[in-house]
Design a protein around this nucleic acid. Structure first.
Lengths: 238, 238, 238, 238
DNA sequence: GAATAACCGAGACGGTACGTCAGGTCTTGCT
DNA sequence: AGCAAGACCTGACGTACCGTCTCGGTTATTC
């Protein structure tokens, strides 16, 4: 998947040694060996990603075209393909570099409770718009390309799951959690729920849903008892 | 989205209010107007949908071709396009008519416990092959077609969620469940987890995963305590 | 090429035993055997031919469609194909039946000289418009279908050549002709010249051309000396 | 009709005033504007035209397919359509570039008599294979495309007529010809006869026919007396 | 007069070519 | 050697037409 030369944009997709590593901004190694010839114009990467983001938002994955991205970026198609080997991977990186990437565990203050931590996470306002939509766009490709699936998992899914996993680890350290839980599995639940709802597009993924996801699913699941509600009135009437 | 004439294959796809409605065989109104000329060969619809389903499962949405569907159905492309105006709409109906294999609540014996019921559900061997793969294939289109999303939700997702929801209702009647849970939300968890794992294609959706999903996620979440294990050794060592 | 039943429109393409037979109006034998069942509606033939003629004039051979002919005739495609086995053959008969067919030798008065007879022939105003254009339309098919070529030759070319051949025979009887000529070959010259000019469409086939064809080609060729000009001024200045 | 850009393949196909102009190699103007980007691969033009010529001769216009042409040329359909906007226009240029085989007047030795010159012309073995077949193939299109007709006339018909016209001029200089003949018209006779016979496909265009055309039509017509036969026995018995 | 058989208009059917368009690669001339 | 431009091949798309087949209904001949 990576370019033959090591100069690719996501040559080492992130590979966090520790599971809670930051989402790893795309590394721009200035080239392992001093290459001859004209060096790459690093500014083109950003231009292309910006163009890709715009085209993606405007047309969606299926109707976005590489020629359109290149034209909007004022680049040639070869310049795009020199950096990303396929449309799917360009989209992955486009999304991975959206906003400031997935939230980092360090950014979530320790509120003293899992429920509080999750609320703090929700407050981070990481710009996830488009992440799951893009994943939906390339979903069909994932079936047939394990490499692409690996990259998508690495850059889109894993960082977001990892944050939740980290909060669960914090809670475990606090002794909040019920014993014998499969925290790795549990940590995947919120991402899966959000992704499915976004892909189906039938119900909004709004603050109420996210809170419900935390308070009605994750906290009860992890702690073994329904989340203590500070304000009973924020419990949605059903 | 539907066929131009009112003879659409999924004339009323979205409105079954009761969640356990049958998969709704495609209604074949005997023609609203007395048509002249050679009538449509109704058997071609089924042949084409079968072919489309097979091609979809085999190649995914992007790589499935209309010519391939027509050839597999022994039909001409015109016969396909006479019924569905585009590839996306053919897939809509293909999805809409898939799901006969969705398990029905009545098929799940009441074992006396949620955990047992879930195990029984897993044993039903419902014909889910290709359902989630098909969903992945059209995921990109869901963004731009509310109709497609509605049909996919109705035919693929909702019936499967509904069965779990029914088992949760049974458990609630037994008094197994912790109070104050959002059962509608909880019931979505397994489908979301399965769908995501299938789409990513990185880890298998095997019996062990499904059991873990039931015993390590759904039962603890619903009952407030980890599932009692009959055989401790089937608890995966972690 | 003919229909299996003898009821076809051009079942016995004409087969003039004597070479100067009339162009043979399409024979409508009332059926060799007394057939049971509903007889063909003979009026449909004329309607279809009229429609075909109109469509041919309007769109040309390539863009004329059988469905369009049938629709204009108020007939079904099957009714057309029951009478003519292909588009090409329908066009052949359409042309063969245009106007009152090719001129007949009997219609050309004996003026006492070949030159005069040819002038009389030109004055007959047979409606040949479209004959050679139609032949051009099916020219490509002729390459690959000897049967079609036979029909076209029989119904379109031969009758017109035969008239000239008849006039040459008259002239021979008068003793006008030079000895030792291949009259069958010579009789083909005018048709070939007209056909080529019409097909190429670059120069008009007008009265001047036809007169020049007779006076500057056929008469000199057949009689061995340039045609005596009654009016020298009608000799085109070149 | 020409390519949208001025880089057309037959930019000036019609204007050679002198009738014996060379077949006019397709002019390749080095591009009117300094184009950026990858330049057209000029070798593809020739490959495609060769393939088109072969397909045209093999299948005729109607059965020749653009996909077949592209495949035979080892090109993509887009490459063909980038150069010619339609099948008809590709055939126009194919015809325009065919005719290298047309004999030139200079190639016909002066034998001292019209009859001898015509025999020498027949012996030239010019590469006419496919020329008249191609003309037949596109005959239907000629009706609707003056450009196509112009090109076909210019490239296929006119050069061949011109050679005969040149031989007639030689004969006139020798004093062989009867006075007052329309040589331009007479020169068209052989081409018309050959074309018609080839299109009808009913009788072969063989050496005997060509000789008969010269000796029984053209020579008597031009000289006013039947061709003197060296060997009386080669006069066909009739 | 009823049965029969072929007709009729309408249009769906399988097939095939058309002309368009996108993805991903390669080739120019320039920097 | 990178870069912008764009030509290249591949292959799917959706449309149109041909010639065949099938429907429900009609109409003359035959028993």
């Amino acid at each position: 998947m990576a370019n033959p030369d090591g100069n690719t944009a996501h040559a080492a997709p992130v590979e966090p040694p520790e599971p809670f590593a930051p989402p790893a901004a795309r590394d721009r190694r200035p080239a392992p060996t001093a290459r001859v010839g004209r060096p790459r114009d690093q500014t083109r990467d950003g231009d292309i990603l910006d163009a890709a983001r715009a085209e993606l938002a405007e047309h969606g994955y299926a109707r976005m075209t590489m020629a359109g991205v290149a034209a909007r970026a004022g680049a040639g198609k070869a310049t795009v393909y020199r950096r990303w080997p396929s449309k799917a991977e360009l989209v992955i990186d486009t999304i991975a570099c959206t906003g400031h990437g997935a939230p980092r565990l360090d950014d979530v203050p320790d509120t003293g409770s899992l429920r509080g931590d999750l609320a703090a996470l929700r407050g981070l306002k990481h710009k996830d718009e488009g992440v799951w939509e893009a994943l939906a766009g390339i979903a069909a490709e994932l079936q047939h390309s394990p490499q692409l699936a690996a990259v998508a998992d690495e850059r889109l899914v894993r960082p977001r799951v990892a944050v939740v996993r980290g909060l669960l680890a914090r809670a475990a350290a606090r002794g909040e959690l019920a014993p014998g839980l499969d925290l790795d599995l549990i940590a995947q639940v919120p991402a899966a729920m959000v992704a499915c709802r976004l892909v189906m597009g039938r119900e909004p993924v709004d603050a109420a849903f996210l809170r419900s996801l935390a308070d009605d699913v994750l906290v009860p699941l992890a702690t073994g008892c329904p989340a203590a509600r500070e304000r009973p009135e924020d419990r949605p009437a059903r």
